[in-house]
């Protein structure tokens, strides 16, 4: 389902919140950009770029989420680099970061803005 709610803000609804498995992510294609959307175990939403900067493959959404010292994380499934879901920064190498995107839950849907 692709619905554009407000052109001015360009929020895009990508799926139902209930469709997300707690602790996992999905990939969404928004205006040709691949965005990884995560629902953490406690229920928070995060959105980052789907491209793993270390391998160049579009796989971040398939990583295992978790926490490290209270920081919500995702580990790339390719070489297991761990990223801070809030800032996108790689915790193993702060010079590398994923892009991040605004994400919200509204009327049962998950919305991201590119």
């Amino acid at each position: 389902m692709t619905m554009t709610a407000n052109k001015q803000h360009a929020w895009t609804a990508v799926c139902r919140y209930a469709d997300l498995t707690p602790g996992r992510g999905v990939a969404a294609l928004v205006d040709g950009v691949q965005i990884a959307v995560f629902r953490t175990t406690p229920g928070e939403l995060y959105a980052t770029g789907n491209r793993d900067p270390y391998s160049g493959a579009y796989v971040i959404s398939r990583g295992v989420t978790g926490s490290r010292d209270g920081v919500p994380t995702v580990a790339s499934p390719m070489y297991k680099h761990v990223f801070d879901l809030r800032s996108g920064t790689c915790l193993d190498d702060p010079t590398i970061a994923l892009p991040t995107y605004p994400v919200r839950r509204y009327r049962g849907l998950v919305w991201v803005r590119r």
Binding site: G23, G66, V82
Partner: peptide, 8 residues
């Protein structure tokens, strides 16, 4: 915590 890519 929430677990991680090691323990999960």
């Amino acid at each position: 915590g929430d677990g991680c890519e090691v323990c999960k």
